[in-house]
Design a protein around this nucleic acid. Sequence first.
DNA 1: AAGTCCAGCTTACTCGGAGTAGGTTACTGG
DNA 2: CCAGTAACCTACTCCGAGTAAGCTGGACTT
Lengths: 199, 199
Amino acid sequence: MTTAKRKRMPRAERERQMIEVAEQVFGERGYAMASMDEIAELVGVSKPMLYEYFNSKEGLLLACIRQSRAALQEATEQSIVGADSAQDALRRGLLAFFVFIRERRQAWSLLRHEMALIGTPAADEIEETRRQQTDLITALMSGYFDSADTLRAEASAEFVVGACERLAIWCERFPEVTPEKATEYAMDLLWAGLSQRAI
Amino acid sequence: MTTAKRKRMPRAERERQMIEVAEQVFGERGYAMASMDEIAELVGVSKPMLYEYFNSKEGLLLACIRQSRAALQEATEQSIVGADSAQDALRRGLLAFFVFIRERRQAWSLLRHEMALIGTPAADEIEETRRQQTDLITALMSGYFDSADTLRAEASAEFVVGACERLAIWCERFPEVTPEKATEYAMDLLWAGLSQRAI
DNA sequence: AAGTCCAGCTTACTCGGAGTAGGTTACTGG
DNA sequence: CCAGTAACCTACTCCGAGTAAGCTGGACTT
């Protein structure tokens, strides 16, 4: 998997390698069940190295989460440039989100499952990821919606993020639900609401 | 807090007492940071007793979660009896939910934060709680909506649950957002969608 | 009243994994 | 060829989950 000689590599490269392995292991076993010894062995290095680089097990988790968040941010922000309406921007953003979580299951698994550490930096870190999304949506909508009632606007953004996060988890169980299909479901409900489907 | 003499109480009573204390401690410290020794001491009993009753730390968590779930189920199911339309039922259910989480923060905290144990019984247990909610919504809607597209119906239910869960978490930060206000926000978005608010 | 039974309880451990102290090796510039 | 230091290791400590094995108080018999 890695390079030939398993010895002495520069700090930056080792760091990326450690995060890659950790993301894998945390994603497979879950944070609690993963052991630092195992991760160290898979990296091909001794445990104190992990602590040298990340200070603690949670620090390592944080690094993984930050990485995933950066990737998600990049993907969603890029997706909405050039949108010509709120509806269009929302649709593009949703599609980018659903594509991201399908393509990077491991990373997504971390973001969605590892909320155990309430009151710890990791929990804050995950909330930060959501805040990023809600901020994006709030900003997006403020340009197109009546934004007098800021509390309501914020509530709406939270609502959208929660709905899509849950929908994404649900999608994992149905491979036939493509990102496109998921986006359609979400857009229909978000835009027109449930009333459209009442008999 | 408990009875006068701190010795020898019947199994059922001890069990309730243990769950009560555990819910408190897990809610405060979070699952990972809580120690069985601490819970045992607060109960006024030795650690092996906890294992006698619940087998493991996770078993104790499960008992707490099940208890909370039963309470939530009771509250939401009761709330929608006598509703005269889908919209009315949805509104009543949402209000019951938002009232529940405000009144029982500790229990809610457990349900919403303790998903750390991916692949373990506890994670399943929490998912089970959501499934309960989605089933309720699916059933609720199937009576009033065109239910030919079952996949879409399921997706809608997940969507609603995710949105409301997130909205509930957001509400914790704003004491001025009453359960009634939260319900209004949710109903507006769910029923009429975002399009109603476009400029 | 004394004996027996056992549910409820305890003390005193093992074991695994997070985190650390302090020493070792292989590249790097001079 | 010789520092100097960045990368790395061995060998621990400590804490908390989980357990083995035994103790006790009071209910129920006789």
